[in-house]
Design a protein around this nucleic acid. Structure first.
Lengths: 284, 284
DNA sequence: GGACTAAAATCGTCCAGGTCGTGCTTCGAG
DNA sequence: CTCGAAGCACGACCTGGACGATTTTAGTCC
């Protein structure tokens, strides 16, 4: 994928004249750098932002390095499942990016097609010998893909900090990475400490960074009593710092455990996003 | 880390064609040396300057010998702390250099992440047995790292000279090295006489070199009366030569002592930089 | 080590096509 | 009709890729 575009590329991609694109660039509607020779270069992420915010339709996706998906059949989760199952990372990225450019939020994409696809992968392939391979490859693709999408989000220096991770015993980073990305979409600066993160360390990190919000993404609880106790400790620490705490994930019975520890539980990423937005609204 | 680059490396690092890079080199936009066989070689520092001044984005940092940091978690001071605490000098250098290439000034990096990281190192490791080792190693890394960053600054022959050091009893050179680097970033040619430097010697050196500015970096004052008296002497000497004098550092009560001696005190490197820039503006 | 060799990198040069800025035309809303 | 935004045309200049010739690098043998 090209990392910079010429005005002509971007113009053709969204079906306007090159002149207009140049004018818009000069008017500051699109941020451009110049080569030493004076040619405009548009960063890929900036192109994405412009397309999305100007509501332009993507006439020729291939000019942005996105595969032209065409009128694919099936539900969104199914399309994404097929792409992930076949190991087509570029296709999956193109699919999600196109939806994003059409105005979909990352939250809705993650909670929707992505979750559906991953769930389906787990079910369909569980009993095949290739199952583990397919699922691991898909997970890997997802990690890379989410990172790329996250890199395209605008970041403001004055945004409040959120910090989080997946507790000890959780070896997969995808849930926590999704949470970080979603919070960044909401307007936080998210620090993802990743998997296998003892909750005390998380509490310490939150104190250090002056975080306003802490998230915990849990796919597995090994020892319920110990977990609740640690969670209580984290909640106390967050309460002292008047810092929000949100917990979520696919671990069985997690909602009950969160309740015992007196911590807000979110069923999906949309819930986390709501929590985050509420928090932001309250502190401004 | 490589100390010279080929046009191809630099071109790929910033995502332009090799042809363009060669043309720019021949046009003098990038300074190159030639091997005996006629191949262009670009000094690492020159590459840095070019990237920064042309506003190019670093597409492939690894080609410059910089580790690809990616979306690292955590506040800047925290990242740097972790790198320093683990003895990862290359990583720390990559981190600071990346920020520098993104447009951050060295002053802001020194006053910001570097100070935060070193402070944190001092606090976190004070009571551990490994503490002294970790802190010394980090200090060593910092010294090397600042020297490398300083080597990348452009130097003009007609810049006014600044001279400075840390007075007797101050055995660590890092504060004075930081001051020298910051002043060079402002446009001085800074001569760092280093630690354990009697102030009379500094005065003599300033006279010798025709320095326009003298700095003193103080982390420790052994005998206040003696120090103030020496400082008064230095101030008199500087006044005679109409030479600026700035003092700063972490020594307790330093501001008061500076006031008694009638010398400008700066709380941080940003203050020193302001003083230096003001001085430059006045003499031109 | 030093000599030799094959592979890889770089040289200088050329050119097709992209991009620049500017001035002009088109077109629809007020 | 007037105005501003969008598109078009054009000569000058910039960029990226290709080419055969040369240099550098890395490996091998002695």
């Amino acid at each position: 994928m090209k990392d910079t575009l010429s005005p002509r590329d971007l113009a053709r991609a969204i079906g306007v004249s090159e002149s207009s694109m140049k004018r818009w660039a000069d008017d500051g509607l699109v941020q451009t750098n110049r080569t030493p020779g004076g040619h405009r270069r548009i960063a890929w992420a900036e192109a994405l932002r412009f397309i999305r915010e100007s509501g332009s339709s993507l006439v020729r996706p291939e000019l942005l390095g996105l595969e032209s998906l065409g009128p694919k059949a099936g539900a969104e989760g199914e399309i994404l499942h097929d792409l992930l199952a076949s190991g087509d990372g570029d296709g999956a990225f193109s699919f999600l990016t196109s939806r994003f450019l059409d105005g979909a939020t990352l939250v809705s994409l993650f909670d929707g097609p992505l979750r559906a696809a991953m769930q389906r992968l787990g079910e369909l392939w569980r009993h095949e010998s290739r199952g583990i391979f397919v699922e691991h490859r898909a997970t890997d693709i997802c990690l890379e893909l989410i990172r790329k999408l996250r890199a395209g989000l605008p970041l403001r220096a004055d945004s409040p900090v959120a910090i989080g991770g997946a507790p000890a015993g959780n070896h997969h980073g995808i849930g926590s990475l999704l949470a970080a990305t979603v919070l960044e979409e909401c307007g936080f600066r998210a620090s993802n400490l990743g998997p296998d993160m003892p909750l005390e360390v998380l509490a310490g990190g939150a104190r250090e960074t002056g975080a306003r919000l802490v998230w915990v993404s849990v796919a597995l609880v090994e020892n319920e009593e110990e977990f609740v106790s640690e969670l209580r400790g984290l909640a106390r620490s967050c309460g002292d710092a008047s810092c929000g705490l949100a917990i979520g994930g696919s671990a069985v019975g997690l909602e009950r455990l969160a309740e015992r520890a007196g911590v807000a539980f979110g069923r999906d990423l949309a819930a986390l996003a709501s929590y985050g937005r509420g928090f932001l609204a309250a502190t401004r």
